[in-house]
Amino acid sequence: MDNPLSVSVLALDPVLDAGAKSSLYGSPEITMVLPHEPAKVAVVVADRVDGQVLELVRTTRSAAYGPEVVLVATELAPDEARRAIALGARGLLRRREASADRLVRTVTTAADGDCTLPTDLLGLLLADPLGLPGEPSGRFGPAAPRAWAGPGLTAREAAVLRLVAEGRETSEIAEELCYSVRTVTAVVRDITQRYRLRNRAHAVAYAMRGGLL
């Protein structure tokens, strides 16, 4: 990374704020900025993902400079993950899993427009993407779709998208699935074009919300 990535930390608890900052300060890839300053990524740290935290995710993502949002929480249930993703979160981590290295990787992945989730949580969401009623329109945004009316994903597309959601690089996905890098790139491009999505992160979020996987 040629220039350090600007990152801010937003926490309602000063202890959580200090812990997240200490994990990020040592990375040469990152430069810390104040919460009110423009940042490429904002890390929201919380104990529980309640309405106040979800509102913080929403308002942070919709700020004028539009930072990507990484949410780190002590507890993170599937329904909370769905809501956070619907509001624009691009990375989700549980605090017990947020080592300095993993937090930095999640932040840099979010900055690249990709989405990272804990593997076990991703599995639960993919197994039951429509387990909850759609969110009502209002302060937390429009309702999530109950189902997608268009064609589903092929087995190859689903496999690639699962690894994208884990934050894997294109080369890593190609190696694990025994595909060429060109094939993986083409698969992701086909998904985003078919569903008119903005990028890989949007594809992951849309698939989980719409039951495509």
Rank of each mutant, 00 (worst) to 15 (best):
Met1Lys: 09
Asp2Met: 06
Asp2Ala: 10
Ser6Gly: 03
Leu10Trp: 13
Leu12Trp: 15
Leu12Asn: 14
Val15Ile: 13
Leu16Lys: 04
Leu16Pro: 04
Gly19Met: 07
Ala20Met: 11
Ser22Met: 14
Ser22Gln: 15
Ser22Arg: 13
Ser23Trp: 08
Tyr25Arg: 15
Gly26Glu: 09
Pro28Phe: 03
Glu29Gly: 09
Thr31Met: 15
Leu34Ile: 10
Pro35His: 13
His36Gly: 13
Glu37Tyr: 07
Glu37Asp: 12
Pro38Asn: 08
Ala39Cys: 11
Lys40Trp: 04
Val43Asn: 05
Val43Ile: 11
Val44Met: 13
Val45Gln: 13
Ala46Ser: 11
Val49Cys: 00
Gly51Tyr: 01
Val53Lys: 05
Val53Ala: 03
Leu56Cys: 15
Arg58Tyr: 13
Thr59Ser: 15
Thr60Ile: 06
Thr60Pro: 08
Arg61Pro: 03
Arg61Lys: 13
Ser62Gly: 06
Ala64Arg: 12
Tyr65Leu: 06
Pro67Ile: 01
Glu68His: 12
Val69Ile: 00
Val70His: 06
Val70Asn: 09
Val70Pro: 10
Ala73Thr: 01
Leu76Met: 03
Leu76Glu: 00
Asp79Ile: 00
Glu80Ile: 03
Arg82His: 07
Arg82Leu: 09
Ala84His: 02
Ile85Glu: 02
Ala86Glu: 08
Arg90Asn: 09
Leu93His: 01
Glu97Val: 01
Ala98Cys: 02
Ala98Leu: 02
Ala100Asn: 02
Arg102Tyr: 04
Arg102Ile: 07
Leu103Gln: 00
Arg105Ala: 06
Thr106Gly: 02
Ala110Gln: 01
Asp112Glu: 13
Gly113Met: 05
Gly113Thr: 00
Asp114Arg: 14
Cys115Pro: 03
Thr116Gly: 03
Thr116Leu: 11
Leu117Lys: 09
Pro118Phe: 07
Asp120His: 03
Leu124Pro: 01
Leu126Cys: 10
Ala127Met: 11
Ala127Glu: 10
Pro129Asn: 04
Leu130Val: 14
Leu132Trp: 11
Glu135Leu: 15
Glu135Met: 13
Ser137Gly: 13
Gly138Ile: 11
Gly138Asn: 15
Gly138Tyr: 11
Arg139Lys: 11
Arg139Ala: 14
Pro142Gly: 14
Ala143Trp: 12
Ala143Met: 14
Arg146Lys: 14
Trp148Val: 04
Pro151Leu: 00
Gly152Arg: 03
Leu153Lys: 02
Arg156Ile: 12
Glu157Phe: 02
Ala158Glu: 09
Ala159Trp: 05
Leu161Val: 08
Leu161Asn: 08
Arg162Glu: 15
Ala165Met: 02
Ala165Asn: 10
Arg168Asp: 13
Thr170Lys: 12
Thr170Leu: 14
Glu172Pro: 12
Ile173Met: 06
Ile173Ala: 09
Ala174His: 00
Glu175Lys: 09
Glu176Thr: 13
Glu176Met: 11
Leu177Val: 03
Tyr179Ala: 02
Val181Gly: 06
Val184Trp: 06
Val184Arg: 00
Arg189Gly: 12
Arg189Lys: 10
Asp190Ala: 14
Ile191Asp: 02
Ile191Met: 10
Thr192Phe: 06
Tyr195Met: 04
Leu197Gln: 05
Leu197Met: 08
Ala201Pro: 14
Ala201Asp: 14
His202Met: 02
Val204Gly: 06
Ala205Ile: 10
Tyr206Ser: 15
Ala207Gly: 14
Ala207Val: 01
Ala207Ser: 13
Met208Val: 10
Gly211Arg: 07
Leu213Lys: 06
